[in-house]
Amino acid sequence: MYKVSNARQLVDKIYAMDIEAPRVTAHCQPGQFIIVKVDKNGERIPLTICDYDREKGTVTIVFQIAGVTTTKIAELKDGDEFCDVTGPLGKPSDLIFEPIEDLKKKSIIFIAGGVGAAPVYPQAKWLKEHGVGCDIILGSKTKDLLIMEDALRSVCTDLYVATDDGSYGFAGMVTQQLEDLVENKGKKYDLCVSIGPMIMMKFTALTTKKYDIPTVVSMNPIMVDGTGMCGGCRLHVGGEVKFACVDGPEFDGHKVNFDEAMKRSQMYKTLEGRALLKLQEGDTHHGGCGNCGEEA
């Protein structure tokens, strides 16, 4: 169970692989995620289901190295196994519950930032399979960090690539690209789905607010169990406490308290930094580097 295949590096720090998990693929839907535990003593971390093959019973994950666990996962080779994989977790995207006829009438824009391309893909693919078109803005810092360009292009009407440094496509951030489309290119959108770093989602939500475009964001707070049991993933949406793992991960982007969520996601930064250094340097690291928060 949970065997790895097709493990590959996409770009610097971003990897992809398929995992055998028939219990997950049996009923998973776009918008949902899994929790994986790489080895016996590892952490449980959430990763979006980027694609799935119900017949083969495999899910595809695309992930960015952030710390200890993602580093360990990136080291897995074809044939290796995860210790635990559970899911599908979270609610499927609201999209898939809307009548297809209604969706067809809508003009939908996805905004994918960085590794956020991964969760956008299954939704756009689902729409395409149901004969619904959409546009996608794919953003990254620079051309070399861009992922899934072809995959995304194959499932949408128009793909707009934006790089912060202008090395490829539109020069600027995804929010500027959106402004350009709406203000200069005469585009009108009825729904925006924005997935990426929290800061990006915050600013796209502010931008779409200007244009009155209903906006869905996919939140990625720290999680432990993913079943609604620990409350670690809680955030405020429209003044109410919500648990991202069971009430989300997708929420109304105009109602999420991003500032609070961003502060909460920093909670374990120092501890994680220390753990990563431990993994990289074994027991040789004894503080003082300034990165791990430990006094010399």
Binding site: N41, G42, M229, G231, G232, L271
Partner: peptide, 29 residues
């Protein structure tokens, strides 16, 4: 919602299920 405020479930789960109290586990607490 402040950093440093936990439900008992999270605190205990990190420690009991995920063995954060042991050095050989990755879970932070």
């Amino acid at each position: 919602e402040a950093n440093g405020c936990f439900s008992a479930n999270e605190y205990l789960t990190r420690n009991n299920l995920m063995k954060a109290f042991r050095d050989d586990y990755d879970t932070p607490i």
